[in-house]
């Protein structure tokens, strides 16, 4: 972003990568695929790079409002400094926080999640599912991230992105507004779970197995981690693949 600014250019959209997308090795692949999609359709975009910092989401959900607002105000300063108008995020938690909680602190942007961008591009005819890997007939199920689905009522966009694949799409028993959490939200990602009789991602695996899907589509880097751990612990790594909607889209288009 700093480079673009120096060249006097303004990007159409800012890609908010998020901490998982920046540091988590598995999520970095999703980040790169989102970039490939943006380049493929010719959207000029920028990232903040080292100027980006945690939105404060995990701090806020854990009750640390001070830390959240510190992060939020510093990020808003950077975003407003670059005159950012439109943001696409790679993570539903960043999406929710910037879209819903930043305006009250002076950060007003048009914020979309990457699955919404993919849906828009498909609707506009700019993105198809051709020239790459065929998902035809593959049994795919979609896991709703809480902060995209229930949190912000985004249920259709990720599904639209899968519909173009001509795959065998199945829903899990608990889906859409009834979707079961992966277990990572509310800062659970950063702590051990409380005592119980099983982990939440194992409970979610029973839905995945029941659906008989061979691909679980995710739209959140934390869900990705939890679902992959669930697949590993169920010893289904050979049968079931967990892929982000962005990865599926990139693969289907040979990017």
């Amino acid at each position: 972003m700093a480079e673009m600014m120096a060249q006097g250019k303004e990007p159409e959209i800012l890609f908010w990568v998020g901490c998982a997308g920046s540091f988590d090795e598995r999520a970095q692949r999703i980040t790169r695929d989102i970039c490939k999609i943006l380049s493929h359709v010719g959207i000029s975009f920028a990232v903040l790079g080292t100027e980006e910092a945690c939105t404060g989401d995990p701090a806020k959900r854990a009750g640390n409002e001070f830390l959240f607002q510190m992060q939020a105000m510093m990020n808003i300063q950077v975003l407003n400094g670059y005159n950012i108008k439109k943001i696409v995020t790679g993570c539903p938690h960043c999406f929710n926080t910037i879209k819903n909680e930043y305006p009250g602190l002076g950060g007003n942007y048009e914020v979309i999640h990457h699955t919404q961008l993919i849906q828009q591009l498909i609707d506009e005819g700019k993105l198809k599912a051709e020239g790459g890997e065929s998902f035809k007939g593959k049994r795919i199920t979609y896991h709703d991230p809480c902060y995209l689905g229930r949190g912000n009522d985004v249920y259709e966009a990720p599904r639209k992105a899968l519909e173009v694949l001509d795959a065998d799409l199945v829903e899990m028993k608990r889906c859409r507004s009834n979707g079961l959490c992966c277990g990572a939200g509310g800062a659970q990602m950063f702590k051990e779970p409380e005592k119980g009789n099983k982990d939440i991602n194992i409970e979610r695996m029973s839905d995945v197995l029941e659906s008989k899907a061979t691909v679980v589509a995710a739209a959140c880097p934390f869900c990705m981690t939890m679902l992959r751990d669930g697949v590993k612990l169920s010893e289904k790594e050979k049968e079931i693949e967990v892929l982000d909607i962005a990865e599926i889209t990139a693969r289907a288009n040979g990017l």
Binding site: S22, F23, Q28, G49, A53, C54, G56, P58, Q71
Partner: peptide
């Protein structure tokens, strides 16, 4: 969670990574 708070405060990320490595992807 206190560790996570510390990381966010000091490194701008919930994990113990350096802010300078944020663009390494």
């Amino acid at each position: 969670l206190n560790n996570m708070f510390g990381n966010v405060e000091n490194n701008g990320a919930p994990w113990k990574y350096s802010q300078a490595d944020r663009f390494n992807w």
